[in-house]
Amino acid sequence: MPKSFIIKLCIFILTVSVGINAIHSFSKYIHGFAYPSQNDYRRIYFENPVKNPYDLLITGNSKIVNGVNPDLLEIGSFNFASQGESMPVTYAKLNFLEKNNRCDFRYIILGLDYFSFSFSDINDDSYMLYLPPDEKLQPTAKQSDISLNENFNRYMNSNYASDWNVFFMTLFRMASGKNPVITYFKENGQMVQRGVASDNYQIIRNIETDTNAVKYFIKSLAFAKKHGIDAVIVFPPSTKKELANYSGAYRMNFDRFVDSAASKYDVKGILNYTDSTGFELRDFLDVAGHLNENGANKFTAMLNRDVMKIFGRKND
């Protein structure tokens, strides 16, 4: 092989590597202004729930993590929900608290929506980030079960090829002197995201019953019962566009199942705000039903009133 060819090839590979790393580092740096860092996630999901004092733990998916502001609840609370959280992840997180001797809280809110039993995956990077570091606590597929190709694709998508729109938007906001923060965490676990929903968007939910999701929902209820924690199931508010995905029959069956599970595991109450008329599109971030900061405060006020009726009555 001619030497000159090898030299040229090496120069090309070297310049490409340097260039890729430089762009990658710069994009991560810019993203840091808009989004919480990995350290923020670790603090909120693995440190604060262990060291903060609280009587009420709030679990659930993105609708809950965005929608409940623990500062507005009369009972000391921590929002332990996370984006895209499936039922197995909820259960794994409860186990994480148990392992760290933090099952001393008295009440738990289990956030649920009509999409909660349609998925149970924990293979997405966002889930892996929230999962307890102890592999034994991971309930289903582990990182090692995923193929090499799949891991490579996930690595490329999450590390290099993601969120360039946010990069450009953040750069633009910084250049024009505006606040570049899009999403941030409060120390009480609530995630606050900027934005107001637009009716132009659609939301399509592929509804199917994932037995694993149902199984871990039951396990979470059993966990609360085993530890003597009073549980309340909460359905957060949603938008008409999201609700159009669920038929009346589907919702009726879903409610019936949740009712029977709740009575079996001594759940103290079911609060369903799905069809609540108190919310308008401007209270949401998007048509998928995620509340923005104002909407979250509105919802938390309602939730506080109803939760206090249940837990307060018990305290009396």
Binding site: I20, I23, S27, S147, N153, M156, A161
Partner: peptide, 12 residues
Amino acid sequence: LFITFFFGVYRS
């Protein structure tokens, strides 16, 4: 190369 690397969609 750079566009593929940073703006590509990696799937199986």
